[in-house]
């Protein structure tokens, strides 16, 4: 059984919902992102999702776009993620999932990418722009690595059936049709999709996209096996890094990184934020 599956098994025995934070590798730079991930891991993560910074992140809203941009501007490149994972693995056994757009994997070479995932201690991959129809090749070579597929509230029954049967590790259920980013309200429509999945097969289903508050975590925990939170955590980092309030283009005209991020302060805030979010779990 994969490390992801056994983690869900043991959470289930304890009747607990998984908390899965998403962070961008290299944001705001290699060293600080390593400290951030370690802190978030210790503060209550059951699994970790780590994104590879990409220049054209089609499924991501402004917060994660900017996070990608900060990582790339710091000189971080996707291949360094394996070094980062090795560094994380020195002290943590938390299941770790890489989120990467398909072009990065394609450029890397699929086999090469999967090999490096295995060697460094990655447990699963999510490719947000690779639906199962295009994913055969990756699936065929990715033994020992769980390929996590997505479903959403607009997925027709035939897709739910197909994806559920092929799923490995868990299914990522997209809360609301749209892109990533904190939302005021989360529709509970996804609940129907989850019941349909569970009728087909008992596989963990985690909900993500837009989750940003303890109340949302609480209501999702009533029917989901896990809750994924990305943008809301990254907003804490964004504030600390203290770019002007505006958009990416404002950020680009400013100096790259402010001279001094109060590192300890940021890590403390993140810890507090995560503990607060996971309180209801």
């Amino acid at each position: 059984m994969s490390r992801i599956s056994s983690t869900f098994e043991s959470l289930k025995r304890k009747n607990k919902t998984a908390f899965i934070p998403f962070l961008m590798a290299g944001d705001p730079n290699y060293d600080l992102s390593l400290e951030i991930i370690k802190t978030v891991d210790r503060s209550g993560a059951d699994l970790l999702e780590i994104g590879l910074p990409y220049s054209a992140p089609l499924a991501d809203g402004p917060t994660i776009q900017k996070s990608s941009r900060r990582a790339l501007d710091s000189g971080f490149q996707p291949r360094q993620v394996f070094e980062l994972v090795e560094d994380i693995r020195r002290e943590s056994h938390t299941p770790l999932i890489i989120m990467s757009y398909i072009n990065l994997i394609h450029k890397f070479g699929m086999e090469n990418f999967i090999t490096r995932c295995r060697q460094s201690g990655v447990d699963g991959i999510i490719v947000p722009d690779l639906p199962p129809e295009e994913g055969e090749e990756l699936k065929n070579i990715s033994s020992q690595i769980d390929l996590i597929w997505l479903l959403s509230s607009n997925s027709p029954a035939s897709r739910i059936d197909r994806v559920t049967r092929a799923a490995e590790g868990f299914i990522y259920a997209v809360s609301t049709p749209g892109i990533t980013g904190s939302r005021e309200k989360i529709s509970l429509e996804i609940k129907n999709t989850i019941s349909k999945i569970k009728e087909i097969r008992e596989i963990p289903v985690c909900v993500g996209f837009g989750v940003s508050r303890p109340e949302q975590v609480k209501s999702l925990a009533e029917f989901a096996d896990g809750v994924i939170v990305g943008s809301a955590i990254i907003e804490v980092i964004e504030r600390a890094v203290n770019y002007p309030a505006g958009d990416i283009e404002d950020a680009e005209t400013e100096e790259k990184l402010p001279v001094s991020i109060n590192q300890q302060n940021l890590l403390d805030q993140l810890e507090k934020f995560i503990r607060n979010l996971t309180e209801p779990l």
């Binding site: 499924a59 722009d129 129809e133 295009e134 597929w149 959403s152």
Partner: peptide, 12 residues
């Protein structure tokens, strides 16, 4: 060619 898109767009 093909269809390399987020899951949400596949049914659309």
């Amino acid at each position: 060619g093909g269809r390399y898109v987020p899951e949400l767009l596949v049914p659309v």
